[in-house]
Computed example of a mutant assay.
Amino acid sequence: MPEQPPRSHDFDAEYAATDVGRTTFPFTWRDSDDGLGVVVEGHCPRCHGRTRREIRRIVPGTGTKGAPSVPSWLRLRRNPEAATDQAMDQEVLLAERYFCACGHPHPNRPSDGHAGRVGCGASWVLGALARIGAR
């Protein structure tokens, strides 16, 4: 059974680039609003803040200029509702590395951090992932 995160965000947790390994906190995934990607949501296993990441699908054969050539990005499928496509998407999402995006500027955060990325510095891989809003 997945561990439940505490009810409150630890705003005082100092920034630290920390790999916390495989989290047992529950995360969910769903199609993005435009259907061109998926959204993974849950709580950071370090600061317990709510975090969200959208992963865009790429269309095979159209090139990836300007987009990271990450082999684990989801491919746009002709039938995203198919159970086999959902299972493949979930497998890809479980292999992906996630970073805290809680939105809080934790104490001692480096000033040269990436613009728009605010969090405690934790990274992790998912131990469990539940699909929500399946068609």
Score class of each variant (00 low, 15 high):
Ala67Ile: 13
Pro80Arg: 07
Ala83Glu: 15
Gly121Tyr: 13
Ala16Asp: 11
Thr23Asp: 02
Pro45Ala: 04
Ile132Thr: 15
Thr23Pro: 00
His106Cys: 10
Arg7Pro: 02
Asp12Gln: 01
Gly63Gln: 01
Glu14Leu: 00
Gly37Lys: 02
Gly66Ile: 08
Arg50Lys: 03
Asp10Glu: 04
Gly42Thr: 06
Met88Arg: 10
Asp34Phe: 02
Thr24Cys: 05
Cys102Tyr: 07
Phe25Gln: 05
Ala130Met: 08
Ser72Gln: 13
Glu14Cys: 05
Val125Asn: 08
Thr84Trp: 08
Gly35Thr: 02
Glu14His: 08
Leu93Cys: 09
Glu96Gly: 02
Gln4Phe: 00
Pro45Cys: 11
His43Arg: 14
Gly49Cys: 09
Ser69Met: 13
Ala16Glu: 05
Leu126Ile: 08
Arg22Pro: 05
Gly113Cys: 11
Thr23Trp: 06
Ser32Thr: 14
Thr28Leu: 09
Val92Glu: 12
Leu94Cys: 11
Pro80His: 02
Gln4Asn: 10
Ser32Pro: 08
Glu41Gln: 13
Pro6Lys: 06
Trp124Gln: 11
Asp31Ser: 13
Ala130Pro: 01
Thr24Ser: 15
Ala17His: 12
Arg97Thr: 15
Arg109His: 10
Glu14Trp: 08
Pro71His: 15
Phe27Pro: 05
Val118Phe: 13
Gly63Asp: 03
Leu94Asn: 11
Gly133Ala: 14
Leu74Glu: 01
Gly116Tyr: 00
Val92Asn: 11
